[in-house]
């Protein structure tokens, strides 16, 4: 496509483009590498007043531990502050949120895409409005009943709330995905003698995985990244990773505590890195699916 001579970019334009992209890549990636590098240092190096090159060479780390790298931040965060507990909580919450919202979303989205009634439009518009509301506005609505029924602070209720907040989005996305599957597919199945449910089971389920995986990824991100809901609805020992990191910073300032937070931040970012690496194509297609249809 770009091979024709007329399409080729003049040198100065190409330099400009490469320069700009390089700048952007630096902006996007540098903070992560910097924090990863710094997480193996002591606080005096990570925040160096004397000389900023200390953060690279790890002068103070070397003076303290005899090596330029140290894992004290990680040990402190994971073992001393019991970050592993939050990691387990996060995986429980993420797993159940993704499973539940996908089950409801698949069935609901399929039903909505195949029914031609007026109310589908209204249901989807309501879903859009709910999607627009900040999740935290709903939290105060949940808090009082949860206090009254003594359900506050435990994981299952948080999972339910996250599923509820996530549901409009899942429904919306799977609805548009199912609409892209031609109706003829299940109609022909029905002509061959399948019931509605059988048509769904044997015809739609085998072809729906790309859409379901994409939606599942975004549900996972929502559950993983949530701070407002989890920090409000979970008691201290049931905290997930993100509120736990916030709590590291909130406790009284002691030497090294910040490094716990830095190590925890790096640990919590690592799964997201891996996720993007494997599912880059899915994430991109998911982001654009809603957009291209308008």
């Amino acid at each position: 496509m770009m091979s024709s001579v007329a399409n080729r970019y003049p040198l100065h334009l190409r330099a400009l483009i490469y320069g700009f992209i390089l700048l952007w890549v630096l902006m996007a990636a540098f903070p992560f590498f910097w924090t990863l590098w710094g997480s193996f240092k002591v606080e005096l190096d990570f925040f160096s007043i004397a000389n900023w090159t200390n953060a690279i060479t790890g002068q103070n780390t070397f003076n303290t531990y005899g090596s330029s790298f140290t894992d004290t931040g990680y040990l402190g965060a994971w073992i001393q502050e019991e970050f592993w507990r939050s990691a387990i909580n996060t995986s429980i919450v993420c797993f159940f949120v993704v499973c539940t919202s996908l089950t409801i979303g698949t069935l609901g989205g399929y039903a909505l895409s195949r029914s031609g009634y007026r109310y589908t439009f209204w249901l989807l518009i309501t879903a859009l409005i709910f999607r627009a509301m900040p999740p935290i506005t709903l939290v105060s609505g949940y808090l009082l009943p949860f206090f009254e029924w003594n359900l506050w602070g435990i994981l299952p209720t948080t999972i339910i709330v996250l599923v509820a907040i996530n549901q409009p989005f899942t429904l919306w996305m799977l609805h548009s995905f199912f609409q892209s599957i031609p109706k003829e597919l299940d109609e022909s199945a029905k002509v061959d003698g399948c019931s509605q449910f059988q048509a769904f089971r044997f015809v739609i389920i085998p072809v729906m995985w790309p859409g379901v995986i994409t939606t599942g990824l975004f549900s996972f991100l929502l559950a993983y990244n949530d701070f407002a809901v989890t920090s409000m609805l979970l008691s201290d020992e049931n905290r997930t990773m993100v509120p736990k990191i916030a709590a590291f910073l909130g406790t009284t300032y002691t030497e090294g505590n910040v490094m716990f937070a830095v190590a925890a931040v790096v640990s919590a970012t690592a799964p997201l890195f891996i996720l993007v690496m494997f599912f880059q194509r899915r994430i991109v297609s998911g982001l654009t699916a809603g957009a291209v249809k308008g």
Partner: peptide, 14 residues
């Protein structure tokens, strides 16, 4: 593209 996705995917608080 991989690098560009990072700032968006990462938890806002983090």
């Amino acid at each position: 593209i991989f690098v560009s996705l990072l700032p968006m995917i990462v938890t806002p608080l983090i």
